[in-house]
C-alpha cells in the first residue's frame, strides 16, 4: 500500500531544497535568457535582428533544449539515492516507516517539480515578453513546446534516478550520467544515420522512424517539429515519417513510458 503523505514529505523536502539553494531560480533565468536571445537574435547570421516567427523560434529552441534539458535533468538527479548513501543518511531514512517505492517516487516527484517549475517559469516569462507578437495558434504551439520540454526533463530525470540507484558512489554516478547524455544526445542519431547510409537506405528506411522512439530526446524533437507545418518540410523529415506516428498523444504516451520504465528498473534494483 502506498502512503501519499510519505511521498509528499520526501518530495516536499527535495523541492524546498532546490528553491532555497536558488537552483530553480538559476535554471529559470538561463532558460528565459536563451529563449529571448534566440527569439530576437536567432536570425542575426542572416543579417536580420528582431523577432521573426514563432515556428522558427521554437525550432531553434528545440535544438538548444535538446542538449540543455537532458544535461540539467541528469545533473539534478544523478545523486538522488547514491548521494544519501554516500553521505550516510540513507540508512536512517530507511528505518523510517517508509517503503523504498515511496522514497524513490518522493525523490523523483520533488525533483520533477523543481525542474518543471524552472522550465515553465523560464520559458513562460520569455513567452510573456514575446506575447504581443504571438497569436492564439502560436501561443498554443509555444505552450506545447513548454509542456514537451517538461516531459523531456522528466524522462532524463527518471534515467538519472535509475543511475543513482545503480551507482556505488557519486563519482561513478556522475560518469554514468555523462555517458547517458553523450549516448542519447550525441551518439544515438549518428548511429542511426550511419546505419541508414551504410545500408544505402535500402534497409531500415521503414523502421527508422520507429527506432527514433528508442530515444526520448528524439521523441521530443519529433513531437515539436511535426507540430509546426512550416518547419517539417524544412527538415525534410515529412516524407520519411509515417503519419500514424506523428500523433502528439501517442508521442506523449511514449514519453510517459520513458518515465515509468527507468523508475521501475530503479525500484527493482533498490529493493534488492
Amino acid at each position: 500500500m502506498i502512503e501519499l503523505a510519505q511521498i509528499g514529505t520526501i518530495a516536499g523536502k527535495e523541492f524546498r531544497d532546490r528553491i532555497r539553494n536558488r537552483w530553480v531560480l538559476a535554471v529559470a533565468v538561463v532558460f528565459a535568457a536563451f529563449a529571448l536571445v534566440i527569439a530576437y537574435f536567432g536570425a542575426a547570421q542572416q543579417g536580420a535582428v528582431g523577432f521573426r516567427s514563432i515556428e522558427i523560434t521554437i525550432a531553434s529552441l528545440v535544438s538548444l533544449v535538446i542538449y540543455l534539458i537532458p544535461l540539467i535533468a541528469l545533473i539534478l538527479g544523478f545523486d538522488a539515492i547514491v548521494g544519501e548513501r554516500e553521505r550516510g543518511s540513507l540508512d536512517l531514512l530507511l528505518t523510517m516507516p517508509i517503503t523504498r517505492l515511496e522514497l524513490i517516487l518522493g525523490k523523483y516527484l520533488g525533483l520533477s517539480a523543481a525542474l518543471a517549475l524552472s522550465t515553465v517559469a523560464g520559458f513562460g516569462l520569455a513567452g510573456i515578453a514575446m506575447a504581443n507578437q504571438l497569436d492564439l495558434y502560436a501561443l498554443l504551439n509555444y505552450s506545447g513546446f513548454i509542456l514537451s520540454s517538461v516531459l523531456l526533463g522528466m524522462t532524463f530525470l527518471s534515467l538519472a534516478v535509475m543511475i543513482s540507484v545503480f551507482a556505488t558512489d557519486r563519482a561513478g554516478a556522475s560518469g554514468l550520467a555523462i555517458a547517458l547524455w553523450f549516448f542519447f544526445v550525441l551518439v544515438f542519431d549518428l548511429l542511426l544515420l550511419g546505419a541508414l547510409v551504410a545500408t544505402g537506405g535500402h534497409y531500415g528506411g521503414a523502421i527508422f522512424p520507429y527506432l527514433l522512439l528508442l530515444n526520448p530526446a528524439d521523441v521530443f524533437r519529433v513531437l515539436n517539429i511535426f507540430n509546426l507545418d512550416d518547419v517539417r518540410t524544412l527538415y525534410g523529415m515529412a516524407t520519411v515519417f509515417p503519419e500514424e506516428l506523428a500523433n502528439p498523444w501517442l508521442l506523449g504516451g511514449i514519453m510517459l513510458l520513458w518515465i515509468a520504465t527507468p523508475l521501475s528498473i530503479a525500484l527493482w534494483r533498490f529493493k534488492r
Binding site: D17, R20, N21, G88, S89, D91, L92, T95, M96, P97
Partner: peptide, 16 residues
C-alpha cells in the same frame, strides 16, 4: 517502525 528510534553510528543529517 513507527515506534522504533534509531541513532546511527556515523550519523549524517542534512546540512542545509
Amino acid at each position: 517502525r513507527r515506534k522504533i528510534g534509531y541513532l546511527p553510528e556515523n550519523l549524517a543529517l542534512y546540512d542545509n
